[in-house]
């Protein structure tokens, strides 16, 4: 077992984790962050995406011990049912959510992009979500949602 401390969605978090424990399991089972989904478990589908130091990572292939001292964000950081983030609002209004399984990962990849680039073009958006697979809506609505959210975020700031 290993003791780790990290920042989870802005708050200090402590845990004792197994040596072979992946971050996906730590977040879901020890911190009840059920937004982090397991899809393929092999780093291909992107539904387990979390931000580590604001960059997207596959939590299914990240040993939990690696985030000691780092900043981890899940989609819970963005907003809640009472007050959604503009990205979340845009996903709803663009019809970018169908089954919803890929959505938390998509949102985090998009959020990481918008932190670095407030005015991305469609190619930059597609590139940013290229590690997240969606099998329902396809990508047109998702790209549109991210483009719209970028406009709103820019306007608000």
């Amino acid at each position: 077992m290993k003791k780790i401390s990290f920042i989870l969605n802005g708050k200090t978090a402590h845990a004792e984790v197994e040596d072979n424990e992946v971050l996906l399991r730590t977040l879901r089972e020890r911190f009840d962050m059920k937004s982090v989904k397991e899809g393929c478990g092999l780093g291909e589908c992107g539904t387990c995406t979390v931000l580590i130091d604001n960059e997207p990572h596959y939590s299914c292939l990240t040993l939990a011990s690696k985030v000691n001292g780092r900043d981890v964000k899940t989609v819970e950081h963005l907003g809640n049912a009472g007050l959604l983030h503009p990205l979340q609002e845009a996903f709803i209004s663009s019809g970018a959510v169908q089954c919803g399984y890929c959505t938390p990962g998509m949102l985090l990849s998009a959020y990481s992009l918008l932190m670095k680039n407030g005015d991305p073009d469609d190619n930059e958006i597609k590139e940013a979500i290229s590690g997240n697979l969606c099998r329902c809506t396809g990508y047109i609505q998702i790209v549109e949602a991210i483009r719209n959210a970028a406009g709103i975020c820019k306007h608000q700031s």
Partner: peptide
């Protein structure tokens, strides 16, 4: 290489 996540890791 890979995807943005793979390149970060």
């Amino acid at each position: 290489i890979g995807s943005p996540q793979i390149r970060n890791m």
